[in-house]
Amino acid sequence: MSPMTTTIILSSLATGTIITMSSHHWMMAWIGLEMNTLAIIPVISKQHHPRATEAATKYFLTQAAASALILFSSSINAWKTGTWDITQMTDSTANTLLTSALAMKLGLVPMHFWLPEIIQGSTMKTALIISTWQKLAPMTLLCLSMNNLSMTILLTMGTMSALFAGWAGMNQTQTRKIMAYSSIAHIGWMVTITTTLTNITTLALAMYLFMTTSMFSALISLKSKTMQDMTTSWTTSPTLMTMAMLTLLSLGGLPPLSGFMPKWLILEELITQNTIPMATILVMSTLLSLFFYMRLTYTTTLTTSPNTTQTKYKWRFKLSPYTLLLSSTAPLTMMILPLTPLVMN
């Protein structure tokens, strides 16, 4: 892909998200989502490979169906109430359709089946974009229309997402699929708290973006697509593998690291709202997720791969945007927990 084409596509991708995030009219939000979808399709399918073509087709069909549902729900609301304002979704049918559409956009259970397949069929760099940047516009619409959406449906979807992602990720050996199920679990946690406090949702989303960007940057630098690749990456750079290990533990939500902060605050708020059974299910699902993070950590860093003493250490990485991205996001992934009182105030 030529530099001019890449610039146009990435600019369109960014513009579509910004239009959706800054709009108050449903038509403008829909236009931004469509720009976003049409810009990411060439990025997914630029590899001339059947898996990439399949992933691009699946992504287009799923996102087009979700955008059509958003347009349909906003049209029903405008027909009933006479307004296209995003914050004035008062019709119950329109709200149910909108909840389903945003769940499909985000990859929430039971509309999650497209996400692992598309991320597995894409390159690591494209999977990074799908897992991070593509979540911003739907999450913004979710926060804007939160007061009118069905709380029961969202809480059920969020709890099911965290639980199912923990189960489904346990038997995966592909790092991209593990990150896809990690994405589903984290989005499930965010959705459960969106119904109560959107500021914690924003904090959880920011932490998710930092952790996922850090992990994908490490995987891109190490060129590791499977757990088998990760087992032999220690000789490439022990320092980078140590950072990847801490990032995985932060994704699992272990207390000394930054990933514990959003889960701690979300559980505290859920218990305050007297939803103790749902908080219990979320904690149990986190144990499932932590299992496959720990398994990946154990096979990569905590055990030494069978290398001979003549193995040459490849210390010299080529300087790339991903090593710089990793060096900027890894400290945020590991050391923000002491700042929790300051962040909340």
Rank of each mutant, 00 (worst) to 15 (best):
I187L: 14
L287V: 14
A162W: 01
V43W: 08
P42D: 06
Q310H: 13
L254C: 04
L102Q: 01
T132C: 04
T300I: 07
S320K: 12
M4I: 15
L144T: 10
T6F: 06
I118S: 00
K312I: 12
G121F: 00
A55R: 05
E54G: 04
L288H: 03
W133L: 15
M344S: 13
T303S: 10
H186D: 07
S100V: 13
T201P: 01
I18E: 04
N95T: 14
K223M: 07
W189A: 00
S183K: 09
K58Y: 02
I18H: 09
Y59C: 02
Q273C: 08
L106N: 09
T226N: 01
I31V: 13
T123I: 00
Y181F: 14
M146E: 10
L38Y: 03
T62L: 04
S182K: 00
A330K: 04
L282S: 05
A137H: 01
L246W: 03
Q310A: 15
V283H: 05
T15I: 14
A330Y: 11
A101C: 03
F210Y: 13
A330T: 15
S214Q: 06
L246Q: 02
T196H: 15
L265E: 14
L203W: 11
E117R: 09
I119H: 02
L302C: 12
P256S: 05
G82F: 05
P42S: 11
W234L: 15
A56C: 09
L249G: 00
I129D: 03
L106F: 08
M4N: 14
T7E: 04
N307V: 10
L332K: 04
L319F: 11
G166L: 01
T196I: 14
S74L: 11
I193Q: 04
M344W: 13
Y208N: 10
G16M: 02
T202L: 14
K105S: 00
M124H: 08
L249F: 12
G82M: 08
E54T: 10
T272E: 12
T20G: 07
A65Y: 03
L141Q: 01
Q228I: 09
T235H: 15
G253Y: 02
S145P: 01
T93E: 07
M124S: 10
G253P: 06
T202E: 07
M21N: 09
P306K: 03
